[in-house]
Amino acid sequence: MNTQSPGPDFEHAFHRSAERHERVWIFCVVTMLLLLTAGTMFYAVYDYGVVTKGAAFHADPTAPARETAFQDGRVIQTGPNAYSVYMVGHLWMWSPSPIHVKQGAAITFYVTSTDVLHGFEVQGTTINLTAVPGIVGTVSYNFSHPGTYHIICNEFCGIEHQAMIGRIIVDPATRS
């Protein structure tokens, strides 16, 4: 145990400097966290579009899917290049799929499920919304790049969960 005691002087000095650094460290940490928080709040306010918002609640989980919008409309044009998509997740597919739109399309998705939880994730975008039976969630997004986007179910929903893939095809806006 000789190495254990290099003298009380060393211990004392170390403790003094530790206490000094402790204060500086805590100050830095608090400042950093405040900045980070302010930053995220700023984003939160400015980037409303991808924020998911609750919509209607239903007692019967299959009720939303029986509404007309979910049944026939499905992809409804609401403006020059704006659409509402009524998306239903059920075991184990997304409908409607595939969806064809033009580059630059602004789509508002109304998402629900008729059975268990599903996860509405569009790969390569910030769209990420849980499809909950009995609740219709909303999310909007601007598809400004052409290409094929995959809708991937990211909430476990049974044995074919990994194969629950949908497609959104965004055609390039070549002709005006």
Binding site: V30, M41, T52
Partner: peptide
């Protein structure tokens, strides 16, 4: 990412979640 959460609650939660880092 669940539906039915108000944005204000989200903001507050972000702040609190960050404080856990302290």
């Amino acid at each position: 990412d669940d539906p039915g959460f108000s944005p204000i609650w989200r903001g507050i939660l972000v702040a609190l979640t960050m404080s856990v880092a302290l």
